[in-house]
Amino acid sequence: MKAKQLFFDTMKYIALLIGTFVVFFPLYSVFVGAFKTRQEFYIDRLSLPSTWNFENFSIAWEKGDLALGLGNTLFILIVSIVGNVLIGSMSAYALGRFEFKGRNLIIGSYLVAAVIPLITTQVVTYSVIKALGLYNTYGAPIALYLGADVIQLTIYLQFIRNIPYELDEAAMMEGASLFKIFRSVIFPLLGPATATVVILKFITIYNDFYVPYLYMPDRGLRTVATAIQSFVGPNAARMEVISAYILLIFIPTIVMFLFMQRYIFSGVTSGAVKS
């Protein structure tokens, strides 16, 4: 029995180490590549750099619009996430707490919307964005991130159902206004749902390529996704600089992930199960 257990555990570790290797191999090769001189890079991709030079990083930073991309992405992220939290929690409060005519129709229309893959409707959304004068402005991604993906509503709606209505009633006994009940009783209790929404939206918006690509071709409006994509085109032969660029994008997320893993794991899990 002992020997059998040992055998199984060894097999498990071998499988995990193979998985680890597959995850780390591409990361390792861009990591060492980013510190190499151009010549060294093209001689051997896998060796450690003979000297650790940071020149590639400064070229990538200066020529790659990365500061611009990070700034734009951060701005769009903050506005869209705050908006999503407000829109999601407020509509979930209105829909989850009150019975009124058309309520089921609205909930139903959100559920149907969740089935429509947004990227397929871009052909027409494009003309809507243009007609609204949002083309080549921050307004385009923000409007789409707020209006198109409706996952925040489903998450909040599921969550608000589990908050006992007696809490609302108790507050009403004390004469609190409904807005105050939303703000000081319900919204704070929606905290875990808010955390889930923030994490899911952060991941989708941060990674999104086609919205900024289609709607903000202007150079000044580049996000991280479009900045690196347009840097690579004309500089495809400078793989050592590209490697440094990739690392500059990866490192902040890795650091953030290591600090916030608990929240990220639970946000991702409950997001998938609730939607």
């Binding site: 991941i203 990674n207 890795i254």
Partner: peptide, 11 residues
């Protein structure tokens, strides 16, 4: 999963 997808594709 948490790394930037466009950067992953380029990597």
């Amino acid at each position: 999963y948490i790394l930037h997808q466009v950067a992953i594709a380029i990597m």
